[in-house]
Design a protein around this nucleic acid. Structure first.
Lengths: 233, 233
DNA sequence: CGCGCGATTGACGCCCGTCAACTGGGGTGG
DNA sequence: CCACCCCAGTTGACGGGCGTCAATCGCGCG
């Protein structure tokens, strides 16, 4: 009674890595996959482990973070359903550049390095998709580097929150809610600041009616105000 | 009397993008290339231009910088001989993410998007190399993001200078010299600080005998001291 | 019910960005 | 060939944004 049996291969077509494959191709990709369930808080892969598996999130969310020599962590990003992770490392050939942790109970599809390389050989489209996906991530990293280098803290937080709400939000009665548990600390590690400053900023925004927040929950009530903060001169 | 006529195709094998191709393949790649000479200070491509050309630096150096909405610039990196540029944009499909400027008189090989895609089809190795190269850049971006987010200015400058000396240095009587003209402003835009702070830091290091510097020139005299600054607890 | 982790808030101070003034060397044009 | 000028660099003074330290609160899980 595997998940695989209940899954329509065509859902895989929504994964950017497998975009453009025909039904036969998608079915073969799915058959080559194995399934993994990870409980909230558990690691999916660890920084510097040999990168031998590519994952696609099926349900749940994960956090990818890099810890430096000093023990400080930087959050690279969050992985949403139908997004890929680990591809960079597997394609680049070295170890994973960060640690991935499930922030909710999650189900993932997994392919070994050998398998993904075989699939890329069979379907050159997959290699092209991988290039395109990684290029996009590289550009978003460049954008973040620019922000951290040149912008004040409040604006960085606004940018980051806007992006999170956009990519991982779900609309609720109160506004757009980040669809997974996220702490002030996480947000601080994404924006290069401290949890204290994030807390102060969110408190101020709360008083202005821009956000609503509870423990590990953030709801954006006024997206345009956030935009104004992010883009104001 | 083109440069192409005087160039051994095998030199192209040192370009990571074309690594592992056989002599026939390299020759075909070279035949598909066009040549461009760019004077110091001239743009090679502009941010947001349609990305339709991949370049390989043959001789000279270029700076790639991203300017934000506010006009602030962030230096993405410098391109050394036999390194590639523009691949991300061409593969990713959108415009160039930054502006590339020759910092010295430079010669480049250029391939149109259509050509590079044809070459990738003919030689799947090229696509794999592109993936590997871009993965490496993504990882180095992640490292820089971590540094800018978590480290003090002096240490960031030390890290950056070490990397520059490593990748673009040439050994001289006095020490290892950055092999192209670079201003305090450039270094500031690479490390997320101001030219004033860079100047003060280099002055201090000069007094300790760690670096030697002149207009647009930096020489690292004591690499281990730099390392100590970069890694000290 | 109690413990722990996430969040809040205040006080303090320092790193480094900003403003400002000056220096010097090299390239250009007369 | 010299003089001017501009650009890169240097250095001081100042102050504020935000990191750091510290204390407290309260929700939610065990």
């Amino acid at each position: 009674m595997s998940i695989r049996a209940t899954m329509d291969p065509r859902q895989l077509g929504t994964v950017s890595l497998f975009e453009g494959l025909d039904d036969r191709g998608l079915e073969r990709v799915l058959q080559a996959a194995s399934i993994r369930k990870v409980a909230a808080g558990q690691a999916i892969f660890e920084q510097e482990d040999a990168a031998d598996t590519v994952f696609v999130m099926v349900a749940g969310h994960a956090k990818v973070a890099k810890r430096g020599a000093d023990g400080q962590e930087t959050v690279i990003g969050f992985i949403n359903p139908w997004e890929m992770m680990g591809c960079v490392a597997v394609c680049g050939g070295t170890g994973y550049p960060g640690t991935a942790t499930a922030v909710e109970d999650s189900w993932l599809l997994a392919w070994s390095r050998a398998t993904i390389e075989r699939l890329m050989d069979e379907h050159s489209r997959i290699a092209r998709n991988a290039l395109s996906t990684i290029s996009g991530r590289l550009q978003s990293m460049q954008t973040r580097l620019h922000e951290v280098s040149n912008e004040r803290v409040e604006r960085r937080i606004a940018h980051t929150l806007r992006r999170l709400a956009d990519a991982s939000g779900r609309d609720t009665r109160q506004g757009r809610e980040i669809a997974f548990p996220i702490t002030r600390q996480d947000l601080a590690e994404m924006t290069g600041t401290t949890l204290h400053t994030v807390s102060r900023t969110l408190s101020a925004w709360h008083q202005q009616g821009i956000v609503e927040s509870a423990r590990q929950r953030i709801i954006v009530r006024d997206a345009s105000a956030l935009e104004r903060i992010a883009e104001s001169e």
